[in-house]
Design a protein around this nucleic acid. Sequence first.
DNA 1: AAATCATACAACCAATCAGTTGTACGTCAA
DNA 2: TTGACGTACAACTGATTGGTTGTATGATTT
Lengths: 117, 117
Amino acid sequence: MEALLADRADAMFHALADRTRRDILRRVMTEGLSVSDLASGYDMSFAAVQKHVAVLERAGLISKQRVGREQRARAEVDAIRSVSALLDELEEQWRSRVQRIDDLLAAEELESNRSTR
Amino acid sequence: MEALLADRADAMFHALADRTRRDILRRVMTEGLSVSDLASGYDMSFAAVQKHVAVLERAGLISKQRVGREQRARAEVDAIRSVSALLDELEEQWRSRVQRIDDLLAAEELESNRSTR
DNA sequence: AAATCATACAACCAATCAGTTGTACGTCAA
DNA sequence: TTGACGTACAACTGATTGGTTGTATGATTT
């Protein structure tokens, strides 16, 4: 039962790799919406939309709350932020590499200045 | 030939939804690596890794440069940033909703203060 | 020119995916 | 209680995925 970080990332990126699901996520960012509310907006069956919602939920990107007979979905902002964090982490590696190159160039320039003094 | 933004997003998130591809991306953030260099790091065939590289390239997350008989891959930092931007945009909607609620509460408090004066 | 290295790509396979229809179940209103 | 509503889930289908092996092509070395 290894709840690996990589599994979460797999699930989150997979969930985001479908425009219907990204649209659903956008719609539940600002307010909780029932699955029916969501389904009414797309040219596909209720079951299809319900599946998309399930994928988003399994990825932890949304959560559901029972209200009467409705199941209201809302975005999990922290989860979205954690996806951002994964990308920032990637970019950070690049930044540190650029910094290393800058340092190298600075050191070379210093060396060259010293010899031409 | 509609190069829709949504298509790009589909391709980028899909490319990121595989841990091998995320690892490849990590490795080519700091230096250009040939497909063989990359392939040596995984327990799968060269062809499989080459396919992963192709997926990343089609998504615009990496680019390749011929050097002799090698094909050196490097990360496209701007593309990674554009994925981040998509997520930030989502989060921004949430922030503006929170702001709206804060404004509402502030207005109510003001109203209440006025009536209890 | 021949042998080798690095890459690309086609053909195939099992598994997963995104959609469908149909059915079952819990909740609310008459 | 009956019916309608909102949801969940199973079973099926065609398309796509992630992997395989085998073959073809281009650049490098001998």
